[in-house]
Design a protein around this nucleic acid. Structure first.
Lengths: 227, 227
DNA sequence: GTCTATACGGTGATAGAC
DNA sequence: GTCTATCACCGTATAGAC
Protein backbone atom coordinates (compact mmCIF):
# COMPACT_ATOMS: atom_id res chain seq x y z
CA UNK A 1 0.00 0.00 0.00
CA UNK A 2 1.64 3.24 -1.13
CA UNK A 3 1.05 6.81 -0.01
CA UNK A 4 -1.22 7.65 -2.90
CA UNK A 5 -3.61 4.79 -2.33
CA UNK A 6 -3.85 5.71 1.31
CA UNK A 7 -4.80 9.26 0.37
CA UNK A 8 -7.31 8.01 -2.11
CA UNK A 9 -8.80 5.63 0.36
CA UNK A 10 -9.10 8.36 2.97
CA UNK A 11 -10.70 10.62 0.44
CA UNK A 12 -13.25 8.08 -0.58
CA UNK A 13 -13.91 7.01 2.96
CA UNK A 14 -14.45 10.56 4.02
CA UNK A 15 -16.75 11.21 1.14
CA UNK A 16 -18.72 8.08 1.87
CA UNK A 17 -18.80 8.84 5.54
CA UNK A 18 -20.09 12.28 4.78
CA UNK A 19 -22.81 11.01 2.52
CA UNK A 20 -23.76 8.46 5.11
CA UNK A 21 -23.85 11.13 7.78
CA UNK A 22 -26.02 13.26 5.56
CA UNK A 23 -28.43 10.42 4.99
CA UNK A 24 -28.56 9.66 8.68
CA UNK A 25 -29.36 13.29 9.41
CA UNK A 26 -32.18 13.14 6.94
CA UNK A 27 -33.61 10.01 8.53
CA UNK A 28 -33.33 11.54 11.98
CA UNK A 29 -35.31 14.54 10.78
CA UNK A 30 -38.05 12.23 9.56
CA UNK A 31 -38.01 10.47 12.91
CA UNK A 32 -38.43 13.74 14.77
CA UNK A 33 -41.28 14.70 12.47
CA UNK A 34 -43.02 11.44 13.25
CA UNK A 35 -42.58 11.68 17.00
CA UNK A 36 -44.10 15.14 16.84
CA UNK A 37 -47.01 14.15 14.64
CA UNK A 38 -47.74 10.70 16.03
CA UNK A 39 -46.20 10.54 19.49
CA UNK A 40 -43.52 8.09 20.53
CA UNK A 41 -45.98 5.27 21.06
CA UNK A 42 -47.17 5.34 17.45
CA UNK A 43 -43.87 6.12 15.83
CA UNK A 44 -43.08 3.03 13.78
CA UNK A 45 -40.37 2.20 11.29
CA UNK A 46 -43.08 2.04 8.66
CA UNK A 47 -44.15 5.62 9.28
CA UNK A 48 -40.63 6.96 9.52
CA UNK A 49 -39.46 5.27 6.35
CA UNK A 50 -42.53 6.38 4.45
CA UNK A 51 -41.97 9.98 5.51
CA UNK A 52 -38.28 9.82 4.65
CA UNK A 53 -39.04 8.22 1.30
CA UNK A 54 -36.84 5.18 1.88
CA UNK A 55 -37.49 1.56 2.64
CA UNK A 56 -37.88 0.14 6.08
CA UNK A 57 -34.81 -2.04 5.64
CA UNK A 58 -32.79 1.05 4.91
CA UNK A 59 -33.56 2.47 8.33
CA UNK A 60 -32.30 -0.67 10.03
CA UNK A 61 -29.24 -0.70 7.83
CA UNK A 62 -28.26 2.77 9.01
CA UNK A 63 -29.18 2.50 12.69
CA UNK A 64 -29.15 -1.26 13.41
CA UNK A 65 -32.39 -1.02 15.41
CA UNK A 66 -35.32 1.25 16.06
CA UNK A 67 -34.08 1.79 19.58
CA UNK A 68 -30.75 3.15 18.40
CA UNK A 69 -32.50 5.37 15.88
CA UNK A 70 -34.57 6.98 18.60
CA UNK A 71 -31.50 7.45 20.73
CA UNK A 72 -29.75 9.19 17.86
CA UNK A 73 -32.73 11.46 17.39
CA UNK A 74 -32.58 12.50 21.02
CA UNK A 75 -28.83 12.89 20.84
CA UNK A 76 -29.31 15.14 17.83
CA UNK A 77 -31.70 17.41 19.69
CA UNK A 78 -29.47 17.45 22.72
CA UNK A 79 -26.34 18.41 20.81
CA UNK A 80 -28.18 21.03 18.84
CA UNK A 81 -29.38 22.56 22.07
CA UNK A 82 -25.92 22.45 23.61
CA UNK A 83 -24.21 23.95 20.59
CA UNK A 84 -26.78 26.69 20.38
CA UNK A 85 -26.31 28.11 23.86
CA UNK A 86 -22.57 27.62 23.79
CA UNK A 87 -22.23 29.61 20.59
CA UNK A 88 -24.58 32.26 21.95
CA UNK A 89 -22.29 32.52 24.94
CA UNK A 90 -19.23 32.77 22.72
CA UNK A 91 -20.76 35.55 20.68
CA UNK A 92 -21.65 37.57 23.79
CA UNK A 93 -19.33 40.19 25.21
CA UNK A 94 -17.52 39.68 28.48
CA UNK A 95 -19.97 41.82 30.39
CA UNK A 96 -21.61 39.33 32.82
CA UNK A 97 -25.14 40.66 32.46
CA UNK A 98 -24.86 40.45 28.69
CA UNK A 99 -23.62 36.92 28.98
CA UNK A 100 -26.49 35.98 31.23
CA UNK A 101 -29.02 37.48 28.86
CA UNK A 102 -27.39 35.71 25.94
CA UNK A 103 -27.57 32.38 27.70
CA UNK A 104 -31.12 32.93 28.81
CA UNK A 105 -32.50 34.03 25.46
CA UNK A 106 -30.63 31.30 23.57
CA UNK A 107 -33.26 28.76 24.57
CA UNK A 108 -35.84 30.75 22.61
CA UNK A 109 -34.01 31.09 19.34
CA UNK A 110 -35.99 29.97 16.31
CA UNK A 111 -33.66 27.07 15.57
CA UNK A 112 -34.26 25.52 18.99
CA UNK A 113 -37.61 26.71 20.13
CA UNK A 114 -40.22 25.26 17.82
CA UNK A 115 -43.40 23.58 18.81
CA UNK A 116 -42.28 20.47 17.00
CA UNK A 117 -38.97 20.11 18.78
CA UNK A 118 -40.44 20.93 22.17
CA UNK A 119 -43.10 18.30 21.61
CA UNK A 120 -40.38 15.76 20.88
CA UNK A 121 -38.42 16.77 23.98
CA UNK A 122 -41.50 16.11 26.06
CA UNK A 123 -42.03 12.75 24.41
CA UNK A 124 -38.55 11.67 25.43
CA UNK A 125 -38.86 13.12 28.92
CA UNK A 126 -42.05 11.13 29.31
CA UNK A 127 -40.08 7.95 28.74
CA UNK A 128 -36.96 9.03 30.55
CA UNK A 129 -37.77 7.18 33.76
CA UNK A 130 -38.13 3.88 31.95
CA UNK A 131 -35.12 4.37 29.67
CA UNK A 132 -31.93 5.28 31.47
CA UNK A 133 -30.34 6.10 28.13
CA UNK A 134 -32.82 8.89 27.53
CA UNK A 135 -32.36 10.10 31.06
CA UNK A 136 -28.61 10.41 30.73
CA UNK A 137 -28.85 12.04 27.33
CA UNK A 138 -31.25 14.62 28.77
CA UNK A 139 -29.33 14.92 32.00
CA UNK A 140 -26.01 15.67 30.36
CA UNK A 141 -27.34 18.61 28.37
CA UNK A 142 -29.19 19.83 31.40
CA UNK A 143 -26.28 19.70 33.79
CA UNK A 144 -23.97 21.59 31.48
CA UNK A 145 -26.54 24.31 31.01
CA UNK A 146 -27.30 24.52 34.73
CA UNK A 147 -23.62 24.77 35.49
CA UNK A 148 -23.05 27.62 33.07
CA UNK A 149 -26.09 29.45 34.38
CA UNK A 150 -25.07 28.99 38.00
CA UNK A 151 -21.58 30.29 37.29
CA UNK A 152 -22.94 33.37 35.61
CA UNK A 153 -25.27 34.06 38.51
CA UNK A 154 -22.38 33.74 40.93
CA UNK A 155 -20.25 36.12 38.87
CA UNK A 156 -23.09 38.55 38.62
CA UNK A 157 -23.82 38.44 42.32
CA UNK A 158 -20.33 39.76 42.99
CA UNK A 159 -20.67 42.84 40.82
CA UNK A 160 -24.28 43.91 41.26
CA UNK A 161 -27.18 43.83 43.69
CA UNK A 162 -29.31 40.71 43.64
CA UNK A 163 -32.68 40.05 45.22
CA UNK A 164 -31.97 36.31 45.26
CA UNK A 165 -28.93 34.26 46.21
CA UNK A 166 -26.88 33.08 43.25
CA UNK A 167 -28.12 29.51 43.63
CA UNK A 168 -31.74 30.56 43.92
CA UNK A 169 -31.39 32.92 40.99
CA UNK A 170 -30.06 30.18 38.74
CA UNK A 171 -32.72 27.69 39.84
CA UNK A 172 -35.43 30.27 39.34
CA UNK A 173 -34.24 31.36 35.92
CA UNK A 174 -33.83 27.83 34.69
CA UNK A 175 -37.24 26.77 35.97
CA UNK A 176 -38.73 29.80 34.27
CA UNK A 177 -37.12 28.84 30.97
CA UNK A 178 -38.42 25.29 31.23
CA UNK A 179 -41.85 26.51 32.21
CA UNK A 180 -42.03 28.94 29.32
CA UNK A 181 -41.12 26.12 26.98
CA UNK A 182 -44.14 24.28 28.20
CA UNK A 183 -46.27 27.22 27.10
CA UNK A 184 -45.35 26.51 23.51
CA UNK A 185 -46.70 23.01 23.86
CA UNK A 186 -49.85 23.41 25.91
CA UNK A 187 -50.03 27.09 26.74
CA UNK A 188 -52.26 29.88 25.42
CA UNK A 189 -52.62 29.99 21.67
CA UNK A 190 -50.91 33.30 20.97
CA UNK A 191 -47.79 32.61 22.97
CA UNK A 192 -44.62 33.25 21.01
CA UNK A 193 -40.87 33.57 21.32
CA UNK A 194 -40.79 37.35 21.65
CA UNK A 195 -43.17 37.15 24.55
CA UNK A 196 -41.14 34.43 26.20
CA UNK A 197 -37.95 36.46 25.88
CA UNK A 198 -39.69 39.52 27.24
CA UNK A 199 -40.96 37.65 30.28
CA UNK A 200 -37.70 35.96 31.08
CA UNK A 201 -35.77 39.23 30.80
CA UNK A 202 -38.24 40.91 33.10
CA UNK A 203 -37.56 38.17 35.57
CA UNK A 204 -33.82 38.75 35.27
CA UNK A 205 -34.50 42.44 35.79
CA UNK A 206 -36.25 41.96 39.10
CA UNK A 207 -33.53 39.58 40.27
CA UNK A 208 -30.84 42.11 39.35
CA UNK A 209 -32.70 45.43 39.67
CA UNK A 210 -29.63 47.63 39.13
CA UNK A 211 -29.14 46.10 35.71
CA UNK A 212 -32.67 46.59 34.49
CA UNK A 213 -31.75 49.42 32.13
CA UNK A 214 -29.01 47.52 30.33
CA UNK A 215 -31.27 44.48 30.17
CA UNK A 216 -33.94 46.62 28.58
CA UNK A 217 -31.44 47.76 25.97
CA UNK A 218 -30.42 44.20 25.21
CA UNK A 219 -34.06 43.26 24.89
CA UNK A 220 -34.62 46.01 22.35
CA UNK A 221 -31.62 44.91 20.36
CA UNK A 222 -32.64 41.27 20.30
CA UNK A 223 -36.14 42.28 19.26
CA UNK A 224 -34.64 44.11 16.34
CA UNK A 225 -32.60 41.07 15.38
CA UNK A 226 -35.26 38.44 15.66
CA UNK A 227 -37.78 40.42 13.63
CA UNK B 1 -93.24 -1.18 39.60
CA UNK B 2 -93.94 0.16 43.09
CA UNK B 3 -92.02 2.68 45.19
CA UNK B 4 -90.17 0.09 47.19
CA UNK B 5 -88.78 -1.78 44.23
CA UNK B 6 -87.55 1.47 42.79
CA UNK B 7 -85.71 2.25 45.99
CA UNK B 8 -84.25 -1.22 46.09
CA UNK B 9 -83.19 -1.02 42.51
CA UNK B 10 -81.55 2.33 43.08
CA UNK B 11 -79.78 0.98 46.10
CA UNK B 12 -78.44 -2.00 44.29
CA UNK B 13 -77.50 -0.01 41.26
CA UNK B 14 -75.66 2.47 43.38
CA UNK B 15 -73.85 -0.24 45.22
CA UNK B 16 -72.86 -1.92 41.98
CA UNK B 17 -71.86 1.35 40.43
CA UNK B 18 -69.73 2.09 43.43
CA UNK B 19 -67.98 -1.24 43.28
CA UNK B 20 -67.42 -0.79 39.59
CA UNK B 21 -66.03 2.69 40.18
CA UNK B 22 -63.73 1.29 42.82
CA UNK B 23 -62.48 -1.39 40.46
CA UNK B 24 -61.94 1.16 37.72
CA UNK B 25 -59.95 3.33 40.09
CA UNK B 26 -57.78 0.37 40.92
CA UNK B 27 -57.16 -0.37 37.26
CA UNK B 28 -56.34 3.26 36.58
CA UNK B 29 -53.77 3.18 39.35
CA UNK B 30 -52.13 0.17 37.74
CA UNK B 31 -52.15 1.98 34.42
CA UNK B 32 -50.41 5.00 35.92
CA UNK B 33 -47.84 2.75 37.54
CA UNK B 34 -47.10 1.16 34.19
CA UNK B 35 -46.80 4.45 32.31
CA UNK B 36 -44.35 5.60 34.93
CA UNK B 37 -42.30 2.41 34.94
CA UNK B 38 -42.45 1.54 31.24
CA UNK B 39 -43.34 4.72 29.38
CA UNK B 40 -46.45 5.13 27.24
CA UNK B 41 -44.92 3.36 24.27
CA UNK B 42 -44.39 0.13 26.22
CA UNK B 43 -47.52 0.28 28.32
CA UNK B 44 -49.58 -2.67 27.12
CA UNK B 45 -52.79 -4.25 28.31
CA UNK B 46 -50.76 -7.29 29.24
CA UNK B 47 -48.53 -5.31 31.58
CA UNK B 48 -51.37 -3.34 33.11
CA UNK B 49 -53.55 -6.38 33.73
CA UNK B 50 -50.65 -8.30 35.22
CA UNK B 51 -49.88 -5.46 37.61
CA UNK B 52 -53.53 -5.09 38.56
CA UNK B 53 -53.90 -8.83 39.03
CA UNK B 54 -56.79 -9.20 36.62
CA UNK B 55 -57.18 -10.61 33.14
CA UNK B 56 -56.65 -8.69 29.97
CA UNK B 57 -60.26 -9.13 28.96
CA UNK B 58 -61.33 -7.55 32.23
CA UNK B 59 -59.59 -4.34 31.31
CA UNK B 60 -61.43 -4.11 28.02
CA UNK B 61 -64.69 -4.96 29.75
CA UNK B 62 -64.31 -1.96 32.04
CA UNK B 63 -62.92 0.58 29.60
CA UNK B 64 -64.00 -0.71 26.15
CA UNK B 65 -60.56 -0.02 24.67
CA UNK B 66 -57.00 0.72 25.65
CA UNK B 67 -57.39 4.22 24.31
CA UNK B 68 -60.28 5.01 26.60
CA UNK B 69 -58.39 3.54 29.54
CA UNK B 70 -55.49 5.88 28.93
CA UNK B 71 -57.86 8.81 28.61
CA UNK B 72 -59.43 7.92 31.93
CA UNK B 73 -56.01 7.76 33.52
CA UNK B 74 -55.20 11.24 32.31
CA UNK B 75 -58.62 12.49 33.36
CA UNK B 76 -57.99 11.06 36.80
CA UNK B 77 -54.72 12.93 37.17
CA UNK B 78 -56.28 16.09 35.83
CA UNK B 79 -59.22 16.04 38.21
CA UNK B 80 -57.01 15.20 41.14
CA UNK B 81 -54.88 18.20 40.31
CA UNK B 82 -57.87 20.47 39.91
CA UNK B 83 -59.51 19.35 43.13
CA UNK B 84 -56.28 19.78 45.02
CA UNK B 85 -55.69 23.43 44.23
CA UNK B 86 -59.35 24.30 44.50
CA UNK B 87 -59.58 22.88 47.97
CA UNK B 88 -56.32 24.57 48.91
CA UNK B 89 -57.87 27.83 47.79
CA UNK B 90 -61.03 27.14 49.77
CA UNK B 91 -59.07 26.46 52.91
CA UNK B 92 -57.08 29.69 52.59
CA UNK B 93 -58.19 32.89 54.24
CA UNK B 94 -59.47 35.82 52.25
CA UNK B 95 -56.19 37.66 52.45
CA UNK B 96 -55.04 37.83 48.80
CA UNK B 97 -51.39 37.09 49.51
CA UNK B 98 -52.34 34.05 51.54
CA UNK B 99 -54.57 32.89 48.76
CA UNK B 100 -51.81 33.30 46.23
CA UNK B 101 -49.36 31.37 48.39
CA UNK B 102 -51.92 28.64 48.93
CA UNK B 103 -52.52 28.29 45.22
CA UNK B 104 -48.85 28.33 44.42
CA UNK B 105 -47.77 25.78 47.00
CA UNK B 106 -50.69 23.47 46.24
CA UNK B 107 -48.86 22.14 43.19
CA UNK B 108 -46.17 20.77 45.47
CA UNK B 109 -48.31 18.90 47.94
CA UNK B 110 -47.33 15.28 48.46
CA UNK B 111 -50.55 13.93 46.94
CA UNK B 112 -49.89 15.69 43.64
CA UNK B 113 -46.21 16.16 43.37
CA UNK B 114 -44.60 12.75 43.11
CA UNK B 115 -42.00 11.66 40.68
CA UNK B 116 -44.32 8.99 39.40
CA UNK B 117 -47.22 11.29 38.66
CA UNK B 118 -45.02 13.95 37.11
CA UNK B 119 -43.47 11.34 34.88
CA UNK B 120 -46.93 10.31 33.70
CA UNK B 121 -47.92 13.93 33.06
CA UNK B 122 -44.91 14.29 30.83
CA UNK B 123 -45.73 11.09 29.01
CA UNK B 124 -49.15 12.46 28.13
CA UNK B 125 -47.81 15.89 27.24
CA UNK B 126 -45.39 14.19 24.89
CA UNK B 127 -48.33 12.73 22.99
CA UNK B 128 -50.61 15.73 23.34
CA UNK B 129 -49.91 17.08 19.86
CA UNK B 130 -50.90 13.83 18.21
CA UNK B 131 -53.93 13.22 20.42
CA UNK B 132 -56.32 16.13 20.63
CA UNK B 133 -58.12 14.38 23.48
CA UNK B 134 -55.03 14.54 25.65
CA UNK B 135 -54.48 18.13 24.67
CA UNK B 136 -57.94 19.21 25.71
CA UNK B 137 -57.78 17.23 28.95
CA UNK B 138 -54.50 18.94 29.78
CA UNK B 139 -55.64 22.28 28.49
CA UNK B 140 -58.78 22.40 30.57
CA UNK B 141 -56.98 21.88 33.84
CA UNK B 142 -54.33 24.33 32.78
CA UNK B 143 -56.70 27.11 31.79
CA UNK B 144 -58.65 26.95 35.01
CA UNK B 145 -55.47 27.15 37.03
CA UNK B 146 -54.07 29.99 34.93
CA UNK B 147 -57.30 31.89 35.30
CA UNK B 148 -57.34 31.58 39.06
CA UNK B 149 -53.71 32.60 39.27
CA UNK B 150 -54.19 35.57 36.99
CA UNK B 151 -57.17 36.80 39.01
CA UNK B 152 -55.20 36.58 42.22
CA UNK B 153 -52.32 38.52 40.71
CA UNK B 154 -54.72 41.20 39.54
CA UNK B 155 -56.30 41.45 43.00
CA UNK B 156 -52.92 41.59 44.61
CA UNK B 157 -51.65 44.24 42.26
CA UNK B 158 -54.37 46.56 43.51
CA UNK B 159 -53.46 46.32 47.17
CA UNK B 160 -49.69 46.07 47.17
CA UNK B 161 -46.60 47.04 45.24
CA UNK B 162 -45.61 44.75 42.39
CA UNK B 163 -42.39 44.61 40.41
CA UNK B 164 -44.23 42.96 37.52
CA UNK B 165 -47.55 43.62 35.85
CA UNK B 166 -50.32 41.31 36.95
CA UNK B 167 -50.23 39.40 33.68
CA UNK B 168 -46.47 39.03 33.73
CA UNK B 169 -46.55 37.99 37.36
CA UNK B 170 -49.02 35.23 36.69
CA UNK B 171 -47.16 33.99 33.62
CA UNK B 172 -43.89 34.06 35.53
CA UNK B 173 -45.23 32.25 38.57
CA UNK B 174 -46.93 29.60 36.51
CA UNK B 175 -43.88 29.00 34.38
CA UNK B 176 -41.80 28.71 37.52
CA UNK B 177 -44.17 26.09 38.93
CA UNK B 178 -44.02 24.09 35.72
CA UNK B 179 -40.26 24.40 35.54
CA UNK B 180 -39.82 23.28 39.13
CA UNK B 181 -41.95 20.24 38.39
CA UNK B 182 -39.50 19.33 35.69
CA UNK B 183 -36.77 19.28 38.32
CA UNK B 184 -38.45 16.33 39.98
CA UNK B 185 -38.23 14.41 36.75
CA UNK B 186 -34.82 15.27 35.37
CA UNK B 187 -33.35 17.75 37.80
CA UNK B 188 -30.62 17.42 40.42
CA UNK B 189 -30.86 14.34 42.63
CA UNK B 190 -31.53 16.01 45.96
CA UNK B 191 -34.34 18.25 44.76
CA UNK B 192 -37.44 18.00 46.95
CA UNK B 193 -40.78 19.60 47.64
CA UNK B 194 -39.60 21.83 50.49
CA UNK B 195 -36.95 23.28 48.25
CA UNK B 196 -39.45 23.85 45.47
CA UNK B 197 -41.83 25.65 47.80
CA UNK B 198 -39.03 27.74 49.18
CA UNK B 199 -37.91 28.83 45.73
CA UNK B 200 -41.37 29.63 44.46
CA UNK B 201 -42.18 31.68 47.56
CA UNK B 202 -38.95 33.60 47.16
CA UNK B 203 -40.04 34.40 43.65
CA UNK B 204 -43.40 35.64 44.91
CA UNK B 205 -41.51 37.72 47.46
CA UNK B 206 -39.48 39.57 44.87
CA UNK B 207 -42.57 40.14 42.74
CA UNK B 208 -44.44 41.56 45.76
CA UNK B 209 -41.60 42.92 47.90
CA UNK B 210 -43.86 44.57 50.48
CA UNK B 211 -45.38 41.21 51.32
CA UNK B 212 -42.14 39.39 51.81
CA UNK B 213 -42.51 39.23 55.60
CA UNK B 214 -45.96 37.70 55.58
CA UNK B 215 -44.84 35.30 52.86
CA UNK B 216 -41.93 34.27 55.03
CA UNK B 217 -44.34 33.55 57.88
CA UNK B 218 -46.54 31.46 55.62
CA UNK B 219 -43.48 29.59 54.45
CA UNK B 220 -42.51 28.77 58.02
CA UNK B 221 -46.00 27.56 58.81
CA UNK B 222 -46.19 25.34 55.76
CA UNK B 223 -42.77 23.93 56.54
CA UNK B 224 -44.05 22.95 59.95
CA UNK B 225 -47.08 21.29 58.40
CA UNK B 226 -45.36 19.36 55.65
CA UNK B 227 -42.70 17.94 57.96
C1' DG C 1 -67.86 -9.40 36.23
C1' DT C 2 -64.27 -12.30 35.29
C1' DC C 3 -61.87 -15.65 32.89
C1' DT C 4 -59.52 -18.33 28.71
C1' DA C 5 -58.87 -18.99 24.01
C1' DT C 6 -58.40 -17.07 19.73
C1' DA C 7 -58.55 -14.03 15.60
C1' DC C 8 -56.36 -10.48 13.25
C1' DG C 9 -53.35 -6.84 12.08
C1' DG C 10 -49.29 -4.55 12.67
C1' DT C 11 -44.20 -4.41 14.17
C1' DG C 12 -39.26 -4.93 14.27
C1' DA C 13 -35.88 -7.32 12.19
C1' DT C 14 -33.60 -10.68 8.67
C1' DA C 15 -32.19 -12.53 4.07
C1' DG C 16 -30.81 -11.99 -0.20
C1' DA C 17 -31.15 -9.76 -4.96
C1' DC C 18 -29.52 -5.72 -7.28
C1' DG D 1 -26.56 1.37 0.07
C1' DT D 2 -31.00 0.34 -1.19
C1' DC D 3 -34.75 -2.48 -2.15
C1' DT D 4 -38.48 -6.34 -1.64
C1' DA D 5 -40.10 -10.37 0.44
C1' DT D 6 -40.72 -12.67 4.41
C1' DC D 7 -40.71 -14.24 9.24
C1' DA D 8 -41.76 -14.61 14.03
C1' DC D 9 -43.74 -12.15 17.45
C1' DC D 10 -46.62 -9.23 20.11
C1' DG D 11 -50.40 -6.07 20.35
C1' DT D 12 -55.51 -5.18 20.83
C1' DA D 13 -59.89 -6.72 20.75
C1' DT D 14 -63.63 -10.41 20.40
C1' DA D 15 -66.33 -14.61 21.63
C1' DG D 16 -68.13 -17.36 24.64
C1' DA D 17 -67.90 -20.28 29.01
C1' DC D 18 -68.54 -19.75 33.87
Amino acid sequence: MNALSVTEKNFHNRSRVRQSQFRKQQLIEATIDCIDKLGLSQTTLAHISKRAGVSQGNLIFHFRSKDLLLQQALRHLSEEYLNNWKSALNKAKNNPIERLCALVTASFEPAICTRKKISVWYAFWGEARSRPVYMSLCGDHDQAFSGALRNLCHDLGKVTNATLSADSASITIEAMIDGLWQNFLIGPAGFNRQQAIQEILQLVSIIYPDESKSIQQLANNSRGITR
